[in-house]
């Protein structure tokens, strides 16, 4: 598997990361190096091994249905670049 500069631009745009042309050019071989390295794992025959879903032998813990949190509006809004009337205020996004 390898990526070209168009793919890098698309991934960057999906992740909302701005990249310059120079950065894209530098990133293509870098990512392909990483992908090639990861691909070596494919050389191991894992056909008889169940996929590993977690590295710790725990099961998922479930909570009881109780209200134990919230009502911390000031803390929630504290880092917002802009907040008004108890809302986050963001540039208008309307369909």
């Amino acid at each position: 598997m390898s990526v070209d500069s168009a793919t890098v631009r698309k991934i960057a745009s999906l992740a909302r990361i701005a990249v310059s042309d120079a950065q894209v050019e530098a990133m293509v071989p870098e990512l392909n190096n990483i992908l090639g390295w990861i691909e070596q794992l494919g050389e191991v025959d894992t056909s008889s091994v169940a996929p590993m879903t977690a590295v710790i032998p725990n099961t998922l813990r479930l909570r009881d249905d109780a209200v134990t949190d919230g009502d911390v509006r000031d803390a929630v809004l504290k880092n917002a670049p802009q907040a008004e009337h108890g809302f986050f205020a963001v540039p208008k996004v309307i369909e």
Binding site: A66, T68, D69, G70, D71, R73, V76, L77, G86, F88
Partner: peptide, 17 residues
């Protein structure tokens, strides 16, 4: 999260971190 789900509360009062 443990924040409440009730409908119609004041904005952002039923929000945990």
């Amino acid at each position: 999260s443990g924040a409440a789900t009730a409908f119609g509360a004041e904005p952002n009062t039923q929000v945990s971190l």
